[in-house]
Simulated scan of single mutants.
Amino acid sequence: MRCAQGGGLTDERPSFREKLRMEAAERFRQGDENPIIAHDLRVSVRSAQRWRRAWSQDGPRALASRGPASLPLLGDELFAVLEGELAKGPVAHGWPDQTWTLSRIKTLIGRRFHKSYTVQGVAALLKRHDWSCQVPARRAIERDENLVAGWVKETWPSVEGPWRCSTPGSSSRTKPDS
């Protein structure tokens, strides 16, 4: 039996699922019914039916785990090469600015490795390798953080002005004294 992309399972989970299938195979041999097996093993009746069909054709070895249905297109070695290409920056690969987007990375993977990913697949690949999406801060190159901090501290309070006091007849939330 195969699980797509590892079935989204942790390393322990595929072996647990295989033990369930082997237990089901033993129950098939004993002649138990699918709904009873499904209930006892806490799986769907449909899974028990599918397992029984595979077991009846090829025996218990048909229920053994054969790993994920597909392997990632870029393994760890190729991802290391991709990281090197990403470090060069988008301009080095022909884009007009220094912003990496998922579609640009998708195009780079296609050009460099002749592999086809979807944009969502690129996002999953990057996330799997602990990369995060970041939005660049749009700041002027000439920006001086010390001057900005001084302006906020000294100039902004005088520009902002004191809070207005409410007086009777203004849009105050309190009622005027009678």
Rank of each mutant, 00 (worst) to 15 (best):
P68N: 04
W131K: 13
Q120N: 14
F79R: 05
V45E: 07
S47A: 07
T107F: 07
W55K: 01
E142G: 10
G6F: 00
C3H: 12
Q49G: 00
D58A: 12
W51A: 00
R143G: 02
L71C: 08
S132R: 10
G31S: 05
L73H: 07
Q98G: 09
P96K: 12
N34A: 03
P90F: 03
R139D: 08
W131N: 05
T101V: 05
E12I: 13
Q5S: 13
A4Q: 11
T101K: 03
R50Y: 05
R42V: 07
L73N: 01
S15F: 10
A38V: 03
Q30G: 09
P90N: 04
H39D: 11
R111D: 14
F28I: 02
L86N: 01
L78A: 15
D58Y: 07
C133A: 14
W131S: 03
I37M: 00
S15Q: 14
L71Y: 10
L102T: 11
Q98A: 14
I141Q: 08
W55C: 01
S103V: 15
A64R: 12
I141C: 07
K88S: 11
E142M: 10
G121I: 00
K106S: 02
L147F: 06
E23Q: 13
F16T: 11
A123E: 13
S70V: 13
A137S: 10
T10Y: 10
P90A: 11
R112I: 04
L74N: 00
H129V: 07
K106Q: 14
G110S: 07
A64D: 05
V148P: 00
R46L: 08
V148I: 14
A25V: 02
S65K: 03
V119Y: 04
G94K: 00
D40E: 14
L108A: 04
R42E: 15
W55F: 15
R111A: 14
E83K: 05
R27K: 12
A80M: 11
A48G: 02
W51M: 03
S70A: 15
C3K: 09
N34C: 08
P60M: 09
D32G: 00
L74H: 00
V91A: 09
A123Q: 12
A48W: 02
E77T: 15
A38E: 02
E33A: 11
A92L: 05
G7M: 04
S132F: 08
G8Q: 06
S70M: 12
R21G: 01
A137D: 12
H93P: 02
E77G: 10
V119D: 09
A140E: 12
A24I: 01
A4D: 11
K19L: 07
G75P: 00
A24S: 08
R128T: 14
R143Q: 07
L71P: 04
A140Q: 12
G84L: 07
R42N: 13
P14A: 05
R53A: 15
Y117K: 03
W131T: 03
R138K: 12
A24W: 00
S44F: 01
V45M: 06
G7C: 06
L78K: 11
G75M: 03
R52S: 03
W51S: 00
A123H: 11
G7D: 04
E23C: 08
